[in-house]
Computed example of a mutant assay.
Amino acid sequence: MPITAPLVVTGSGGQLGRALLDLAPHARGYGRADLDITDLDAVRAVVRTGDVVINCAAYTAVDRAETEVDAAFETNARGPMVLAVACGEIGARLIQLSTDYVFPGTGDRPYRTNDPTRPNSVYGKSKLQGEQAVQDLLPHTGHIVRTAWVYTGVDGDFVATMRRLERERETVDVVDDQVGSPTYARDLAAGLLELAERSDAPSILHATNAGQASWFDLARAVFAEIGADPRRVRPCATSAFPRPAPRPAYSVLSAQSWAAAGLTPLRPWRDALNDALTRIYD
């Protein structure tokens, strides 16, 4: 689908922001040093009538958020609110990225968009507050897109970490009691660009690569894809790696809303992983 909408990408220095600019080089990208999304006057200065703003800017240090509460809410809640105010003033649309962490993580089937939210971490609570601000301020021109387990395979994400550990260690222990939806940033970016052309899309959507996996499954798949013995990855329980912020045990997101909106479903996660690693090693 040709991209006709004038695009603004905030958080353009992150993995998703970079993927968006790679696929849509005409977009106006703003990293953290270029634009403070919590500064209304600064946002007003860069957003124009008719723009579609894709907000990838976020405080994503899940564990640090438990003690840096104000910082997490400033970026994840106030930031989207400010963007929504600015967009509402001039008739721009806003696509706000959100997360599986808004759910409690105790389910046993993929979470739908209308399932009750009940985040257990500061990070999840701050992202939910950002969602609510966009819904309240832009009921007709705002979209919430929840996603999960986003990676590119470089720069320290989970897939990149498994690539590094495969070189450094004989065996790697990875939790097998957390299940989610691994999502390749490039696939998600393509989906967001399609959404940017669809002003009639629902206000809340879920977008992840299809299928589900545990972190253990994903780690073994990474080893297999790069030609290493997947048996070198060993399963363990979450309790083996205590963290300040609780992790959802089950956070698979249903693609039902995305498909029902007529948007192109994201491909299976294993196919996407193969493509991601092929791009790195070619």
Rank of each mutant, 00 (worst) to 15 (best):
P104C: 04
Q135T: 13
G130E: 02
P268R: 03
S254E: 06
A27P: 13
E197M: 05
H206E: 00
T171E: 00
E168L: 12
D187Q: 12
T152S: 07
G13V: 01
G79Q: 05
P202H: 09
D63W: 06
H143V: 09
I37C: 04
G17V: 00
G88I: 10
A221F: 10
S214H: 02
T4F: 09
D136H: 15
A245Q: 11
Q212D: 07
R164P: 05
A259D: 08
Q15N: 10
V47H: 12
Q132Y: 07
D34P: 04
L165N: 05
A148P: 03
R232F: 01
V52E: 05
V150K: 06
A276V: 12
E170L: 08
L20T: 03
P202V: 11
L263H: 03
D70T: 14
T238E: 11
L7F: 01
S257V: 08
A33C: 08
L277R: 06
N76G: 01
L94V: 06
A189S: 04
A207V: 02
Y123M: 13
G153H: 05
T141P: 04
L195W: 07
V52T: 14
V43K: 05
E194P: 07
D41G: 07
T106I: 12
R186F: 02
E170D: 07
C87N: 12
G14E: 00
Q256P: 15
F73S: 01
A201C: 09
S181V: 07
A24G: 00
V43H: 01
Q132R: 15
V43C: 00
E197D: 01
T264E: 06
D176L: 11
R118Q: 15
P6H: 10
L205W: 05
R118G: 14
I95R: 00
A237N: 13
L21T: 14
D155K: 15
G14A: 07
L128W: 06
V150N: 09
D63L: 09
L205P: 01
L253Y: 04
A224N: 12
A61S: 15
R48G: 13
C236N: 13
S239I: 12
D229K: 03
I54R: 08
R32Q: 12
R18T: 10
P242F: 06
N114V: 14
A219H: 05
I280Y: 06
A221E: 09
T67Q: 14
M162L: 13
V46N: 10
G29Q: 12
D157H: 11
L40D: 07
A255Y: 05
G211W: 00
P6Y: 05
G105T: 03
H140A: 11
T106W: 07
R243N: 13
G14V: 06
A196T: 07
E166V: 12
E170S: 10
V233Y: 01
D136L: 15
G105K: 08
T113N: 08
Q256H: 14
V222W: 04
G156L: 10
L16E: 04
G11E: 01
Y184D: 04
A261K: 09
K125P: 02
A86K: 07
F103W: 01
E131S: 01
L277N: 05
G156D: 11
V252W: 00
N114H: 15
D282K: 15
L97V: 07
L16N: 02
D275M: 09
G31R: 14
G17Y: 00
A133N: 09
G180E: 01
G17A: 00
I54M: 04
V9P: 08
Q129P: 04
L23Q: 02
S181E: 04
R112C: 12
R164C: 05
L277T: 02
